[in-house]
Simulated assay, not measured.
Amino acid sequence: MTSLTDHGLTADFYDFESALTEEERKVLLKTRHFMRDEVQPLVAESWEKGAFPKELISRFRESGLVGLAYEGYGEHGPAASHLLTGMMAMEMSRVDASVATFYGVHNGLAMYAIHHGGDQAQRDRLLPAMARMDVVGAFALTEPLDGSDIAAGMHTTARRDGDAWVLNGAKRWIGNATFADHVVVWARDVDDDQVKGFVVNKGTPGFTAEKIARKTSLRIVENADVTLTDVRVPESDRLQNVSSFRDVAEILRATRSGVAWQALGVMIGAYELALRYASEREQFGRPLAGFQLVQDLLVKCLGNITSSWGMLLQLARLQDAGVFKDEHSSLAKAHVTARMREVVAWAREIFGGNGIVLDYDVARFFADAEAIYSFEGTREMNTLIVGKAITGQSAFV
């Protein structure tokens, strides 16, 4: 196998990849090759069409890159470290944030919800096929009228009826839902007013998912408006270890750091494009890279990338040690996505007019950054989580 050094990132100015073991570096390089060879050729056309290229599902299945974080499922060995899975998310977003989001929804939100919230029988029944990506998962939490206030404002209901549950309500912005085989749906039990989780299988009567059209960000992700009308779910498909919204928050705490890694990948992808363009594009008789103002933009991009990478490296170490808290992932998500917004704007600026043409790719990174900035908790909500932790005072209303 070609050494990782031969494919190292120009953005890795402090050699953060050296923190991985040799075996982990092989997996990261495998991810890099997969994204370059299988995903990159499909990205621009798929983004313009606003549709997910379904052929990627079988390619992911063959790649062996799914389910690495879950020991005992699929054909994988010990669970991968948070550092490795974080860098994999980064590597995917470096090529395309939409495909990274598809992977994160399935491999992170949906699988972790079942792994964390399901009992052993449910894990054994559902996760092996998901780890092989024989089936695709989705995660339905956000609602049309409730986003940041979903903990208190959830309108989707669950009512026990014998050995089944009846779900009614609506969800919005649900990635993968238009083609997912298993959708983890969160609903409020009308009897005890507590949030519970349910695995709704493809084709269940009363479940519909309509793709949200005319998006300007993450266009390859098929987000959906989901409607649940008297959807019957057997008790065996209720996540047995979920008893309140605290369990949902635990899942989001674990996956929020993955969004920060995605933001880092978007920064790196935009920066690399800008650096290459500045080195090749000539104005006034020399490359753009030879002008002071262009170098200033590139160095500011690199500074944001490097500081964010250092933060996420330590966050992954806290996760692997089992000592990280809500405020740790919230600070990373809020800070890194804000730095991402700056980098994609500076990178696009270097391209001038060409920066708004899809053929040059940087426009895609610029647009996709807006969705990453908002989902898995807005900057404001994550800021209040951190603010409460450092002051001891809750500023939530």
Rank of each mutant, 00 (worst) to 15 (best):
A332K: 06
S93T: 14
D361E: 14
H182W: 12
I251S: 05
L273G: 15
R256P: 11
Q120Y: 11
D359M: 03
Q122W: 08
T204S: 03
E210I: 11
E250T: 11
L293H: 10
A180H: 03
G67P: 00
V39P: 00
A338K: 14
L297F: 12
H106I: 09
K196C: 03
Y271H: 14
K300M: 06
Y277C: 04
A100Y: 02
R159Q: 13
E48C: 08
S236A: 13
S279F: 02
T142P: 06
E376H: 13
R32S: 07
P144R: 03
Q262M: 15
Q314F: 10
K196H: 13
D134P: 05
M111L: 08
T21A: 01
Q319A: 09
K300I: 05
K388T: 13
V183D: 02
D192V: 01
N201P: 06
T178E: 11
I390K: 12
V136C: 03
Q194A: 09
R281Q: 12
R132S: 10
L126C: 09
G72H: 06
N304S: 04
W261M: 03
D193W: 10
E370S: 14
A113K: 01
P53M: 05
A260R: 07
G147Y: 10
E342V: 09
Y277G: 00
A97F: 04
S243A: 13
S98T: 06
S217P: 07
D230Y: 00
R160S: 07
G303M: 03
L315E: 00
T306V: 13
R256D: 15
M92T: 06
R246G: 14
V99S: 01
G8D: 12
Y14Q: 14
I356M: 09
T21F: 05
G137K: 03
G67Y: 00
G74M: 02
A129P: 01
Q262Y: 06
A80W: 00
L331G: 01
V136G: 05
F366C: 05
R256T: 15
E342F: 05
R25S: 12
D193P: 00
F375A: 04
G162H: 05
A209S: 12
E376M: 12
D237R: 10
A110K: 04
